[in-house]
Design a protein around this nucleic acid. Structure first.
Lengths: 235, 235
DNA sequence: GCGCTTGTGTGCGCTAGCGAGCAGACCGGG
DNA sequence: CCCGGTCTGCTCGCTAGCGCACACAAGCGC
């Protein structure tokens, strides 16, 4: 669903709460502006806040053996960053990097825990989100193993477009390579193939999706699976 | 930790509970005997029970595109099967297959939900386990992407040995191939290399670990990372 | 306008793992 | 004792992706 540029700046996880709970949560959150490349968490540190992106989006990256890394989650206004806090743990195995600049709502860890204890509706909502996250993580693990770079790239672009609420966004191929866990040249090859087929257009980090249905056809089933998991549980 | 063959048949998740809660849980569970190959859950069905293995162990397998599949979790007496139920969802994206025969404790879904609501200590314990599961899943995703078959096989053998509470266990190479998401020949090559180096011995599905430290050296860092994640959070 | 940084496109030799197919070894049942 | 199923080992040709290195082009600061 390529939301229009002027989609309302809300977080769907919070919107799904009953009125009272939602108001309480919104009141407890502080609006912040996230800049591209901001690192919200690095492994080894402590989680101090949860973030509910509204128009920004955040990438969860698993570092492994020095240079290599792999994206294991992408969080837009359909989700939240800080799942471990909901599980009573204040660390995380993954880095959190702002992938798309924009506003988000943030709540400090202690308050979030309190709200969670006091609001069964919130707890329920977050639990379901954790389930979806778990499903998508399993899907990503298998996808990364079995699908070719081009299909995975197409999937990534679709996921990002959903979260960017726009047809275009900024991301260099070098960065994409880190997300997909491949070499930059691999991305170049896949991207130029998609461009030749008029599915996308890009120059120096500015990517535009031209043909969304075509891109879906070029992507692996995993994109669809992710969407379905979300819609089924939180839709 | 290669537990001795005569390790007590308990589930560590339940053992970690305060006395009252533990007794309540044990009373609510029914002892069952799991047979090798039993399928406790197939995608599309409903989760009717949670299982706490005591001497058995269960493999979580993500099916993808027909024939291919990939193991995304291995559950022994350190964990439980049925995490989605703890998150208020009664389906799962993965198949659950009994990998090691033996006893387990099982509780029906409704009762488990009730216990979870009524016992904060249980909730806390399960939440932490979910976090560990999440961490290990992220680790597995990256491991599967970056590490060679031989190292991944070594890791798998170590993880299985931990859960089998014995040096030897039964698993054919064909089955291993499905777990690791590679061809059978790939497993044959890796396994015979490990055997040549006197780290393991196997014939017709009976695998014995001969040199555990050597196997650790041959495995990727992921084995260690998993252990540490568990010990830190639930140890 | 010049030079530097950043992003993209190549090419080359190499390896891990793929698909398919075959052969022998082992084992249990009739 | 043989037959058939199961498990393991190996081959062949092939491809996706790797590491490395180099070329060029577009934008930016000065």
């Amino acid at each position: 669903m390529p939301s229009p540029q002027n989609a309302p700046a809300v977080n769907r996880l919070l919107e799904g709460l009953p009125n009272g709970n939602r108001r309480r949560m919104l009141a407890g959150c502080e609006p912040v502006e996230l800049a591209f490349g901001d690192v919200l968490y690095t492994t080894g540190g402590l989680l101090k806040h949860v973030y509910f992106p509204t128009r920004s989006f955040i990438s969860l990256v698993m570092p492994i053996g020095g240079a290599a890394s792999l994206e294991v989650g992408l969080i837009g206004n359909e989700g939240m960053f800080g799942v471990p806090l909901a599980l009573g743990v204040d660390v995380s195995p993954v880095r959190a990097v702002v992938q798309g600049a924009g506003p988000a709502l943030r709540m400090d860890a202690a308050r979030f825990s309190r709200e969670l204890r006091e609001s069964p509706a919130l707890r329920r909502q977050i639990d379901r989100y954790i389930f979806v996250h778990l499903s998508q993580l399993s899907q990503t693990a298998a996808c990364t193993r079995f699908h070719v770079v081009e299909a995975r790239l197409a999937r990534w672009l679709l996921m990002t477009q959903d979260r960017a609420h726009a047809d275009g966004f900024h991301i260099t191929q070098q960065f994409l390579a880190l997300m997909l866990g491949v070499r930059r040249v691999g991305v170049t090859k896949a991207a130029s193939s998609l461009q030749k087929r008029r599915l996308i257009h890009y120059t120096r980090g500015n990517i535009t999706v031209l043909d969304r249905p075509g891109l879906r056809a070029a992507s692996c089933v995993c994109y669809r699976a992710d969407r379905e998991a979300y819609d089924q549980i939180l839709g």
